[in-house]
């Protein structure tokens, strides 16, 4: 009985056919990645806004704003350019 039982137990499990299972998993992974990307971008924008707000309260930030106005650019424009630059830097820093 033991030998028969071991033989029975050792029979490989019958593997179900794929039947689009893999495709469904990969579609869910795609959705998960898209969601993660959106969260990442929102976090980056928030972080950038926070950094720029804090920067505008410092001497360096005010000096930068003054320089910008002296160069005939408005402060919002300078901050906007800085925001874009900072976002790009942060995006580049994130591994693929």
């Amino acid at each position: 009985m033991s030998d028969d039982l071991d033989l029975l137990l050792s029979q490989p499990l019958e593997e179900p056919v794929d039947a689009a299972f893999s495709a469904r998993v990969l579609a869910n992974i795609g959705g998960m990645r898209a969601r993660d990307d959106r969260i990442e971008i929102a976090a980056l924008v928030l972080a950038s806004c926070l950094v720029l707000t804090l920067l505008s309260l410092t001497h360096a930030g005010q000096a930068a704003a003054l320089s910008a106005s002296q160069l005939a650019y408005s402060v919002p424009f300078a901050l906007g350019i800085s925001l874009l630059f900072l976002s790009r830097l942060l995006l580049d820093a994130i591994p693929e």
Partner: peptide
């Protein structure tokens, strides 16, 4: 290392065994 195609291949290779185990 972020290669999604490699993970897709892993899913195709291992789905049968994992599903059979979980069915049991």
């Amino acid at each position: 290392q972020g290669n999604v195609a490699a993970f897709a291949e892993l899913v195709r290779l291992h789905q049968g065994k994992l599903r059979a185990f979980l069915r049991r």
